[in-house]
Amino acid sequence: MQTVMAFVVGALYAAGLYLMMRRSIFKLIIGLALLSHGSNLFLFLMGYLTRGGPPITPPEAVRPVAPFADPLPQALILTAIVIGFGVQAFAVVLIRRAHETLGTDDLDKMQSTDVD
């Protein structure tokens, strides 16, 4: 299954980046979301997929019963998801404001700050 999921991760990265390269700002934001899904899943795979119990110590035991999933990547992903959510929420609103203020959703029309 690890191998299958590796391809899923690849697909998420590819789709996310492809959408980010479109000129519509809406696609940009969707692309960002896919990219962040991709990197979260990538991190998850780095802990190696383990079917079986979650890393929770059952009552009356002092440690989780093996086999259990690698808890560390889970914690990292949790942090990454939440950070990603914060950043995305900001980005969504930023893009909306940009569209409102600049009057376009075409990224190629936003080059006044680069070109003299």
């Binding site: 690890q2 191998t3 999921m5 590796a6 391809f7 991760v9 690849g10 697909a11 998420l12 990265y13 590819a14 789709a15 980046l17 492809y18 390269m21 991709g38 990538f42 795979l45 780095m46 190696y48």
Partner: peptide, 17 residues
Amino acid sequence: IALAVGVLVTGLTLAAT
């Protein structure tokens, strides 16, 4: 180019694990 990156990430996943 997006597909190329996708393939790359897939490869990395398999290689690293």
